[in-house]
């Protein structure tokens, strides 16, 4: 079942304590509403891809991007050409 604290953690969202229970009720109501789909017979539906198109492809031609400063400086926290983040401990693909 919908556990708002677990999902909020997964979604990296700090919820305001005073609205958390209201938010939880609302999401549960919406989940109750969409529950109606379970009754729809979809046994005849083949696949679910929407587009029959192929994706576009790009030729393997590199483009030099120039000075990184233009791209880095729009960040709120930087150090030189790098983005700064609070200490990261542990692995990436964690």
């Amino acid at each position: 079942m919908f556990d708002i604290q677990k999902i909020a953690k997964l979604a990296r969202l700090n919820l305001k304590p005073e609205t958390e229970s209201e938010l939880s009720t609302q999401v549960k109501n919406i989940l109750g509403y969409v529950e109606a789909l379970q009754a729809v017979d979809t046994s005849t539906v083949e696949g679910y891809g929407l587009s029959d198109a192929s994706p576009h492809f790009r030729p393997d031609e590199p483009v030099e991007r120039g000075d990184p400063e233009l791209r880095v400086r729009i960040s709120a926290r930087t150090q030189g050409d790098l983005f700064f983040v609070p200490k990261v401990i542990g692995e990436g693909d964690a």
């Binding site: 483009v63 991007r65 000075d67 990184p68 050409d81």
Partner: peptide, 8 residues
């Protein structure tokens, strides 16, 4: 150089 090979 860091972030030299980046784009939007």
């Amino acid at each position: 150089r860091p972030n030299a090979n980046t784009c939007p």
